[in-house]
Every structure is written in structure tokens, then in C-alpha cells.
């Protein structure tokens, strides 16, 4: 129950708790769902996202595996070939790299390789991104590695309600899903009654309506973009925030509609800007909204440096201020501010 005692308003739920509840409801609702990975059993995961599940459902359904990410994803593929729906956890973004070959060469391709005969309903949960003061290898934004691989659905929730709904949908989906959990938002709360069904995960949503500029964000940056939009409203600038949710395959219709209406766009992510997912968004928006654009599409992201140590990560991660600085550069006065030779 998430309803507050004695009141009608739903209780506040953290994203971590929403994910935990989604896993519990999925395991309870389908005997083919199994949850496994490193430390997801009695410990409940290093972020406690699987808290209580081992005790409730037992070792047959929720269990610890050997510490080997390629083996975890590889065995999940085999299980899915025989009708299970495995949900596996990669403990941290950078610890998922040993599984990369299984993800790219098999998980993403087996349906296509077999002309649809062998679908792989596997969910790979990856806590990703920075902002928690983690030492090296604990804060990577690895989404572009996955979105560049056809055959994968790559999704990332920005709110607790979406975290619940999208994880349930991902587990029910017949395609493999890389489910990126913005770990710094595990403790972010929202008043929502669970279970909840939000928009289908392959549809971007407008989180805040506005008329002057579209901020395109996903995962951990949704909250930051909303913060920026709130601050800008005080200064008389109306910012629309689009939350992409499913990064690949992308449904760009909501995005294109929004930018054609506002005429300006800034795409925001934690990952380094160069070659990042924002480049795809910027190119796509430019191609499809060119005649509606009042200014170049700008990207705000992390620096093009390896993820910094905790005491320096504040310089790397985009915040509301950096987003608003970019918004300010969108040629409001028709002056040329950016780019060009020299």
C-alpha cells in the first residue's frame, strides 16, 4: 500500500521503491520471471532495489549468480530461449562492459538472426550515471553504446511512476530491453499510488509545457531540466520539457512536434557530449524541424573527459545553471553566437 494513512493523497514513493515494487509484482504475476545477478539475493542489491524479494519468493525465483557479467547475460539468453523471462542486474554501468559482447552480438541480434523464431524477452537492469560520489567505474553514462545497436530497446525512466510502469512493461516486452536506472534518482520521490500504468514506454512525454524552447532530456536529467524550466519561468521564459523515456528505437514524433512549435531546442544528458546520444537528437531535430528553427540545436552534457573523481564530478555534470546558460545562447536577440569558421 502506498496510500498515506487517513488521507486520500497517495504516499510519496522513491524511484528505488517503485522499481522494487515493479520487480515484486512481475515475479508474483508470472512464474517465468526470474531475477538474478550479483548480490541481488539476501542482500537485496547494493542499491536495495531487490530488497525483500529473495525472502518472499525464494532461491528459485530471485538468486545470486557467480560474479561474471558476460555469463549472467549469456545464461539469461539461454533461459529466454527456453521460455523464461529473466531480469538480470549489472551492478554498475561500467561493470556491464564484460557483458557487452553478449548484449551486442546475441541479445540484440538473435530475433533477427532467426527471422523471429527466437525472441529474447530479457531485461538487463543497469544502474547508470553519476552524481552519487562514486569512485571510478561507478558513474558512467553508457546509453550511447547500447542505442547504437539495433535490436535493443534502451529505456530510462525519469520519475518513480515511470520507473514502475516502464519496468513492468519492459519485463512483459518480447524484445530485449536495456533498462537504465538513473542511480542518483533512486531516492527521488513522487506521490503516486502503485501499481500505476503511465504512457507506453516507447512514447516520449511532455513533462512540462512551454512555448519558447524545448528541453530534451531523459533519465537523471529530467529532474534537472524541470528545475531549469521552473527557474526560467520566474524570469519570464517558457520552457517545455520532453522526457524521451525510450531512447532506442526512438519515436521522434512528440519531439518534432514540440520543437516545431517552440522553434528552439536544447538536448541535455550527463554523458560526454562528443558522439553522445544528444548528437542523434540534434541531427534528427535539425533534419525534421529545419524551417521552424530560430537557432541551432544545442547540446548540454558532460565534459569530454573520463568520468571525474567524486570531488570533481560537480564540474562535469550538467546542472540547471548550465542548461539555462545554453538556453540564453539560443539567438533570442538574433545575434550570431555560436559556430561558424574560425
Amino acid at each position: 500500500m502506498t496510500r498515506a494513512p487517513g488521507g486520500d493523497a497517495p504516499a510519496e514513493v522513491s524511484m528505488g521503491a517503485a522499481l522494487n515494487r515493479a520487480l515484486r509484482d512481475a515475479v508474483a504475476g508470472d512464474p517465468d520471471v526470474v531475477v538474478y545477478g550479483e548480490d541481488v539475493g539476501p542482500l537485496g542489491g547494493v542499491f536495495r532495489v531487490t530488497d525483500g524479494l529473495h525472502g518472499e519468493f525464494g532461491d528459485e525465483r530471485v538468486f545470486d549468480s557467480p560474479l561474471a557479467e558476460s555469463g549472467i547475460v549469456g545464461t539469461a539468453i539461454g533461459m529466454a530461449m527456453y521460455g523464461l523471462r529473466p531480469v538480470v542486474e549489472m551492478q554498475f554501468d561500467a561493470f556491464a562492459y564484460p557483458a557487452f559482447e553478449q548484449v551486442v552480438s546475441h541479445l540484440a541480434k538473435t530475433r533477427n538472426r532467426t527471422r523471429g523464431a527466437v525472441p529474447l524477452p530479457v531485461v538487463v537492469r543497469v544502474p547508470y550515471g553519476g552524481g552519487i560520489g562514486g569512485v571510478e567505474h561507478h558513474s558512467d553514462s553508457s546509453e550511447a553504446y547500447y542505442t547504437h545497436t539495433p535490436g535493443l530497446r534502451v529505456v530510462t525512466p525519469g520519475t518513480p511512476a515511470d520507473a514502475y510502469s516502464m519496468l513492468r512493461e519492459a519485463i512483459a516486452c518480447d524484445d530485449p530491453v536495456v533498462f537504465l536506472e538513473p542511480k542518483r534518482r533512486y531516492w527521488s520521490k513522487e506521490a503516486v499510488e502503485l501499481p500505476v500504468r503511465t504512457e507506453p514506454m516507447d512514447r516520449p512525454v511532455v513533462r512540462r509545457q512551454g512555448t519558447d524552447v524545448t528541453l530534451v532530456a531523459y533519465g537523471p536529467m529530467v529532474e534537472t531540466a524541470l528545475e531549469a524550466a521552473g527557474a526560467a519561468a520566474g524570469e519570464g521564459r517558457s520552457i517545455e520539457v520532453v522526457d524521451l523515456r525510450q531512447l532506442a528505437p526512438l519515436d521522434d514524433s512528440v519531439l518534432v512536434e514540440s520543437v516545431c512549435r517552440t522553434g528552439r531546442a536544447v538536448v541535455v544528458h550527463e554523458a560526454s557530449v562528443f558522439g553522445g546520444y544528444g548528437a542523434e537528437v540534434a541531427a534528427r531535430v535539425t533534419e525534421r524541424c529545419f524551417h521552424y528553427l530560430e537557432a541551432p540545436v544545442l547540446r548540454v552534457g558532460g565534459l569530454d573527459v573520463p568520468y571525474p573523481p567524486p570531488r570533481l564530478e560537480g564540474y562535469h555534470l550538467p546542472d540547471a545553471e548550465r542548461i539555462l546558460a545554453a538556453v540564453d545562447r539560443l539567438q533570442w536577440e538574433s545575434e550570431w553566437v555560436e559556430g561558424g569558421p574560425g
Binding site: 526470474v34 545464461t75 533461459m79 529466454a80 530461449m81 527456453y82 521460455g83 529473466p86 552480438s105 546475441h106
Partner: peptide, 16 residues
């Protein structure tokens, strides 16, 4: 890379 698929598949079969 298919060796772990064999492990997962037989695991799933035993569960069923």
C-alpha cells in the same frame, strides 16, 4: 559465446 546459452537453456528446462 553460445556456451553460456546452453547453461541458461538447461537451467530453464530443469525449472520447468
Amino acid at each position: 559465446t553460445n556456451a553460456s546459452h546452453a547453461v541458461g537453456l538447461t537451467y530453464a528446462a530443469r525449472r520447468k
